[in-house]
């Protein structure tokens, strides 16, 4: 149709030869159907095969393609060139994570946090297979459903200044995931998980900036999960005063 092009600045970092990241500009043909991820794939296939980035599903399900697009954490496969054209676009690896290489970040801390909150159903009593499934009504499911939509993309950690200031903070997605299990009627692990919530690094590391919920591509509301947990934790504190362990 047209032969227009678009410029993309990419923050690059090649650990085997660079001491610090630097910006490299790529000019590619513009196509209004093209996602940021497809633009990167075009660059890798046609322009510069050394560029590294993560992706898998191309449909906002796997959570691998998070990156900073003009300073905002987004999924590369869910952002489109047309929303930036004709301006230059700046791509950087997700903020608040160490850079592994180019747009690839080290997510170990994030994964550890997710694992730390016991992200599995802890039933009141184990049932054998023959005893059948744990029954749940749609209303009971509604209580936790939105918190179960997380795809572990890490955008909310890149949006969180408290995590940036102190990585000890358990952080938005992990606390939302914690809410997902504590709010599940089949789960009886709330008391165990509350110990994590009650800590300084738990919900009390949060100052309610609220950007996490804004950037989440799946409509999860980590800020609400944390805020509700602050109320819970305050109640728990009061009870703890009268009933010391």
């Amino acid at each position: 149709m047209t032969n227009s092009t678009i410029d993309i600045d990419i923050l690059r970092y090649r650990p085997e030869q660079d001491n610090a990241p630097f910006v490299q500009t790529y000019r590619i043909p513009y196509d209004e159907e093209m996602s940021m991820l497809e633009a990167l794939q075009y660059i890798k296939d046609e322009v510069d095969g050394t560029l590294s980035f993560r992706w898998s599903c191309r449909m906002a399900i796997c959570g691998s393609c998070g990156m900073m697009i003009d300073g905002v954490p987004k999924l590369g496969c869910k952002a489109f060139l047309r929303d930036y054209y004709p301006n230059k676009i700046k791509l950087e690896p997700l903020a608040n994570f160490p850079i592994e290489r180019d747009l690839v970040v080290v997510m170990d801390d994030f994964i550890t946090k997710l694992e730390s909150i016991k992200p599995y159903i802890i039933p009141a009593e184990e049932k054998s297979l023959e005893q059948g499934e744990y029954i749940q009504t749609p209303e009971q499911m509604a209580k936790y459903k939105q918190f179960s939509m997380c795809i572990n993309c890490g955008l909310c950690y890149a949006a969180c200044p408290q995590y940036a200031l102190n990585t000890e903070f358990t952080g938005p997605a992990a606390l939302a995931l914690l809410a997902r299990y504590n709010r599940d009627s089949r789960d009886a692990g709330s008391a165990e998980r509350m110990a994590i919530v009650n800590a300084e690094e738990g919900v009390w590391g949060c100052t309610f900036v609220g950007y996490c919920s804004k950037v989440c591509p799946k409509g999860v509301d980590p800020a609400a999960a944390i805020q509700l947990f602050k109320v819970e934790s305050a109640k728990d504190y009061l009870i703890g005063m009268f009933k010391p362990e």
């Binding site: 009650n198 800590a199 300084e200 602050k230």
Partner: peptide
């Protein structure tokens, strides 16, 4: 065991 914060007060 994580330490309980006194922040609730």
């Amino acid at each position: 065991q994580p330490k309980r914060s006194h922040e609730p007060v």
